[in-house]
Computed example of a mutant assay.
Amino acid sequence: MFLGILTLLVAILSLIGGYRELKKKNFFAVGFAALSVALFGWFSIRTLISIIFTGGGGTV
C-alpha cells in the first residue's frame, strides 16, 4: 500500500512541477514532467488496483 501511495504522490508532484514549468515556457521540463506523470501515475493506479482486488501483496 505504501508503494502505491508513494508513487501517486510523486505523480501529483510531477503534475504540479509540469504546470509551473509550463507557465515559464520550459518545454523540455514539461516533457519530462509529462513522462513522469504518465509513468508514476500508471504504476500507482495499477499497484492500488492490485492491492484492492487481490487483497494485498505481502505476508506480514
Rank of each mutant, 00 (worst) to 15 (best):
47 T>C: 09
22 L>N: 07
39 L>E: 05
21 E>F: 09
57 G>N: 09
16 I>Y: 09
28 F>R: 04
2 F>C: 09
24 K>R: 10
16 I>E: 03
8 L>G: 05
7 T>N: 10
51 I>C: 07
8 L>V: 01
25 K>Q: 12
1 M>W: 07
30 V>E: 01
12 I>H: 04
50 S>D: 14
3 L>Y: 10
17 G>Y: 07
41 G>Q: 02
31 G>W: 06
59 T>C: 14
58 G>H: 14
57 G>I: 10
42 W>E: 10
25 K>C: 08
8 L>A: 13
53 F>H: 11
14 S>L: 05
8 L>S: 08
15 L>A: 15
47 T>Y: 07
49 I>L: 15
9 L>M: 10
15 L>W: 09
7 T>H: 04
22 L>V: 02
54 T>I: 05
58 G>V: 14
50 S>T: 11
59 T>P: 14
57 G>Y: 14
54 T>L: 09
49 I>R: 11
6 L>S: 09
36 S>K: 04
43 F>A: 10
18 G>Q: 06
4 G>T: 04
53 F>Y: 13
60 V>W: 13
41 G>D: 05
29 A>F: 11
25 K>L: 10
40 F>S: 05
19 Y>T: 05
21 E>P: 01
24 K>A: 10
20 R>G: 04
35 L>R: 08
30 V>P: 01
60 V>L: 12
45 I>Y: 08
16 I>T: 06
48 L>Q: 12
2 F>E: 14
26 N>C: 03
29 A>N: 11
4 G>Y: 02
6 L>W: 03
34 A>C: 10
37 V>Q: 03
56 G>P: 01
25 K>M: 08
6 L>E: 04
50 S>G: 14
49 I>K: 13
51 I>W: 15
34 A>Q: 00
21 E>G: 06
4 G>E: 03
48 L>E: 05
48 L>K: 05
12 I>L: 13
17 G>K: 02
34 A>R: 04
8 L>P: 01
58 G>T: 12
9 L>G: 09
60 V>Q: 11
10 V>Y: 06
55 G>T: 02
14 S>D: 05
26 N>Y: 01
30 V>Q: 01
22 L>K: 11
51 I>R: 12
36 S>L: 08
50 S>Y: 15
39 L>N: 03
29 A>E: 13
36 S>G: 15
2 F>Y: 08
